[in-house]
């Protein structure tokens, strides 16, 4: 049998799920990674791998 606390806990989880569903329905997710982030990390990784391979081996 559900206690009051159980019901409140379910309501709390429901509120949290809805908060994220509202975010997902927006066109922009606050603080999300952008294409520029991915390009930067790709460029940095390639530069480090190729640069240090050439230098070290």
């Amino acid at each position: 049998m559900q206690t009051t606390t159980d019901r409140e806990r379910e309501q709390d989880l429901e509120l949290r799920l809805r908060a994220y569903e509202r975010l997902a329905d927006q066109p922009y997710w606050p603080g999300a990674m952008t294409a520029l982030d991915y390009w930067l990390v790709l460029a940095m990784t390639l530069a480090l791998v190729i640069g240090f391979y050439v230098w070290g081996v």
Binding site: Y20, W29, A32, M33, V41, M44, T45, L48, V49, F52, Y53, W55, G56, V57
Partner: peptide, 29 residues
Amino acid sequence: REGIAAIIIGNILGVLLVALPTCLPSGKY
């Protein structure tokens, strides 16, 4: 000399390929 290269190459690949599939979903949700 080879050791520094191995450390940088190994770590950037390992950390990057771990951070993308773990941190991004956890950081999002």
